[in-house]
Design a binder for these strands. Structure first.
Length: 385
DNA sequence: ACGAGCCTTG
């Protein structure tokens, strides 16, 4: 019975491959996107290995694992990623499934799905229990590495080779994969397969589908998802609504987006920073700084911390419109919030302030940037004025 | 501790 679900999901993969629009296929970066030197990275690897000697570090600093692996992968230092992760086998934590699940996930984020698979295969030798949770981590690694064929292969062998039974999380991950492949019909039909196997879709199932449909501006199919949610008494949250907000904005239906945000409030779903950012993006794309500012204020009134993208959107438009006082306010706020600011934009703001003879403000911004270590490069007051 | 978003950038 469990193998039948696998077979059916795998069948959907075969169908999806033939119908996939394949517009979203994104190659792994072909060249390093960082200027960090090899020396710095080697030091990073050594420092990381040393840190991971501490059991406290291993159990609580997953963020450090992620950022280290992300930096190494961005620099294409895959052998270093392997080195760091294999090193973790020296610790007894390796017998804990949760720990290995995290490592499998790290391989996935580095785009190293074959390494993830190998680690999964090694679990019994490592004296580590292997349940569907590890299998799900491996499926997720396939999604993060965009290795969709590999996911189909795994589904075909999970029943016989591993005697693991896929669960609701497995299905949600398969849905996510179909959405990323642009095979939305397959994504939706996974729900039927779930139900045939006694697995009820949950909020994450529906949110994944809503995002998939709205990204492709398939409004009417998304409505079917909302209806099904209602039918199943699954209560939407803010993550359900945000993809619709973004899609309405992309579709130039900004007044409907505003209505929706008001509608959310009345349904007791508080809009968050992503919600407001969607509207701000709409107005910024249309060059309407006044309305964009209004929604930025609204964002603050609702205690939402602006996103990095919010600062970039508003800051660029403010510079374009010559509103350097507002641009300065944004830069200060972003730095205080420890958000990375676009360096080019910072320079535009400094230049603009100088042009308006606001030298004190310009200097203040340069200093603020320097003292926060964000701008080790060449943020400068122009000398030719 | 496996599954849902903004953008990706030093």
């Amino acid at each position: 019975m469990s193998s039948s679900l696998c077979r059916r999901l795998q069948g959907l993969f075969t169908a999806a491959k033939n119908t996939a629009t394949a517009t979203t296929s994104l190659p792994k970066p072909s060249k390093p996107t960082t200027t960090t030197t090899d020396k710095t990275l080697t030091a990073l690897v050594e420092k990381f290995k040393e840190s991971s000697n501490s059991s406290r570090f291993r159990s609580r600093n997953h963020k450090s694992y992620e950022s280290t692996v992300r930096r190494l992968a961005a620099a294409q230092k895959f052998s270093d990623v392997e080195h760091i992760i294999e090193h973790q086998k020296n610790y007894t934590d390796i017998t804990s499934e949760g720990f290995v699940v995290r490592l499998i996930g790290l391989y996935g984020k580095a785009g190293m799905v074959d390494h993830a698979h190998k680690l999964f295969d090694e679990m019994p030798q490592l004296n580590c229990e292997r349940t569907v949770m590890s299998f799900n981590a491996l499926l997720s690694a396939c999604v993060n590495s965009r290795e969709f064929d590999k996911m189909g292969e795994l589904l075909s062998e999970v029943g016989e080779k591993y005697s693991i039974k896929p669960d609701r999380v497995s299905c949600n991950t398969v849905i996510k994969a179909f959405c990323e492949m642009g095979s939305l019909d397959s994504a939706y039909s996974v729900i039927d397969e779930m139900e045939k196997n006694g697995l009820e879709p949950d909020l994450i199932t529906f949110n994944t589908l809503l995002d998939g449909f709205y990204r492709n501006e398939r409004f009417s199919e998304a409505e079917k998802v909302w209806a099904l949610m209602k039918d199943k008494n699954v209560v939407p949250n803010v993550i359900s609504y945000n993809p619709k907000l973004r899609a309405l904005v992309v579709d130039n239906r900004i007044s409907e987006a505003i209505e929706l945000i008001e509608d959310m409030g009345s349904k007791g779903v508080n809009p968050d920073a992503y919600s407001f950012n969607a509207l701000i993006k709409g107005f910024c794309d249309g060059g309407n700084l006044e309305e964009a500012k209004k929604w930025y204020d609204e964002m603050e009134k609702n205690d939402c911390k602006p996103l990095q993208g919010t600062f970039t959107l508003l800051g660029s438009l403010a510079c374009e419109k010559g509103d350097f006082d507002f641009a300065l306010e944004l830069c200060k706020k972003a730095i205080n919030q420890r958000c990375r600011v676009n360096l080019l934009m910072m320079q535009l703001v400094v230049d603009g302030l100088v042009k308006e003879s606001k030298m004190e403000e310009a200097k203040e911004l340069v200093e603020l940037g320097k003292s926060n270590g964000y701008f080790r490069y060449k943020l400068e007051i122009p000398s030719n004025v």
